[in-house]
Design a protein around this nucleic acid. Structure first.
Length: 461
RNA sequence: GGCUGCGUGGCAGAGUGGUCAUGCAGCGGAUUGCAAAUCCGUUAACGCCGGUUCGAUUCCGACCGCAGCCUCCA
């Protein structure tokens, strides 16, 4: 039985979908004005695993992840670059897809864009005004009236008084209350704008998610995810908008993933301490990055460092080594395995505990190595198939093993093969000095050899 | 200042009121021409101080330290 930590109640709760057998999932996606960094990679990978596991558990999943393609930063960046907003955002949408695909994140079922959803937002804002939850201010903006929504703060555990006390933003004179937030921004000269009942303008950030989630999934859906930093104010405001407009609970389970950190500090665009996915992928294979992300439970902080990535690489390499010479039985389904399958299920059912799930897989790997050593081909095929079946849930072992070992750019494979052949000739001649010399030469090229009975295999270090 | 959360062995990271996490690294052995990989064995931890308990790393309280949110951020 799947249990999910619900940010709304701060507890692990038994997961029950609204419609039996179906899960409606919405995740806050990227604002597209720059390359994705490792923090974004974590969101993509975490919710990819969530959808994969829900599917493996028998659910039909409708996974929506939005794209924010209009906001202050996008406008600023486009101006800086002397590029149209559309060109800029289209470019980074495509870059984002490239990163997500590389990381093995399956595409969401839909990726609605803010600029293509203005109409549904306008309808929602009008509803909020007609219900007395929003007002058109003197400056032309439309604000949500926080004082009219009694549950404000229920997600982030705050109350309006505390927030006012900690208020750090310059007070906007047009607002009735500093905590009110903008639904519609009146157009400023030179900015992109859409027609609305309140004059030309553009949407505030929060309204897009309320409008698009309801539009794609309905007013009441199962899971809403995103990074921890979105909990307040973004998701708090979404709740106010959605529940205010629709008069019903909008989301049953809120899931928030922890941050990626560097030197114990949050990786973020504003701190400038981020690595883009693109940069990291030059150094490490995508599955290594994915493995690294899955080594910790999704709510824990994840420290980014070369040492961590190296560890992930070593661990993943061991899995591929174990799989290398085994002929996996593709028909194996992990759910049918009592010994390991039940442990894997228990781990994943416990709020997607991928770290624990990986430890179960490490046990399978060891068992696989043992039967390989014993030459038990049937068990070997079974356990390799089992490992692949687990891997499919986590999005690991998706590559051909030889491709994995050869995937870091380096010398031509033919040269390596020729050297190995030369060394094996020397070994046959018991010319150990020559054999070792060739091996050292290969080692200098970053190629590690493994002699097995009658066969020498190699991998790049 | 307010509100969240965290503190586990050299590193990473699960978990538990009283016998095993796991991975990487280390050490000993098997294997190997020597290695590598693999297998077997093995060392080592639960921030600090109190309390509850027969017994606490695990529950409760204080303290210290760290992080996040309160402003754009996944």
């Amino acid at each position: 039985m799947l249990h999910i930590h619900n940010s709304l109640t701060k507890q692990k709760e038994l997961f029950t979908s609204i419609v039996p057998g179906k899960v409606k999932l919405y995740v806050c996606g990227m604002t597209v004005y720059d390359f994705c960094h490792v923090g974004h990679a974590r969101v993509m990978v975490v919710f990819d695993v969530v959808t994969r596991y829900l599917k493996a558990s028998g659910y039909e999943v409708n996974y929506i992840r939005n794209i924010t393609d209009i906001d202050d930063k996008i406008i600023a960046r486009a101006n800086e670059r002397n590029e149209t907003i559309q060109k800029l955002t289209e470019r980074f949408v495509s870059e984002m897809h490239q990163d997500a695909d590389a990381l093995g994140a399956l595409r969401p079922d839909a990726e609605p864009k803010a600029t293509e959803s203005i109409a549904v937002m306008l309808v929602m804002i009008e509803t909020l005004i007609s219900k007395g939850l929003a007002y058109n201010a003197v400056n032309g903006d439309v604000y949500f009236d926080v004082s009219e929504f009694p549950n404000y703060g229920k997600l982030s555990g705050r109350n309006i008084e505390e927030l006012r006390a900690g208020e750090r933003v310059a007070v906007n004179e047009a607002k009735n209350d500093p905590m009110d937030f903008v639904l519609w921004k009146a157009a400023k000269p030179g900015e992109p704008a859409w027609e609305s009942p309140w004059g030309k303008g553009r949407p505030g950030w929060h309204i897009e998610c309320s409008a698009m989630s309801a539009h794609c999934l309905g007013e009441h859906f199962d899971i809403h995810g995103g990074g921890m930093d979105l909990q307040f104010p973004h998701h708090e405001n979404e709740i106010a908008q959605s529940e205010g407009a629709h008069g019903c609970q909008s989301v049953n389970y809120w899931m928030h993933n922890g941050f990626v950190r560097i030197d114990d500090e949050k990786m973020s665009k504003s701190l400038g301490n981020f690595f883009t996915v693109r940069e990291v992928l030059k150094q490490y294979q995508a599955e290594v990055v994915r493995y690294f992300i899955l080594t910790s439970q999704y709510r824990s902080p994840l420290n980014y460092s070369d040492e961590q990535l190296e560890q992930a690489k070593n661990s993943l390499t061991k899995f591929y080594s174990a799989l290398r010479d085994a002929k996996a039985d593709e028909s194996i389904i992990w759910q049918n395995n009592e010994e390991y399958g039940s442990r894997f299920k228990a781990a994943m059912d416990d709020d997607f505990n991928t770290a624990l799930a990986l430890s179960v897989m490490a046990d399978v790997r060891q068992a696989l190595n043992k039967v390989s050593e014993q030459g038990d081909l049937e068990q070997q095929g079974y356990l390799a198939g089992l490992l692949h079946s687990f891997g499919d849930v986590l999005g690991l072992f998706q590559q051909d093993t030889e491709a994995f070992f050869d995937s870091i750019k380096g010398d031509d494979v033919e040269i390596i093969k020729a050297l190995i052949a030369a060394r094996n000739k020397a070994r046959d001649d018991k010319d150990w000095a020559k054999a070792d010399q060739v091996r050292d030469e290969l080692k200098a090229k970053g190629v590690v050899l493994e002699d097995a009975a009658g066969k020498t295999s190699w991998r790049r270090k």
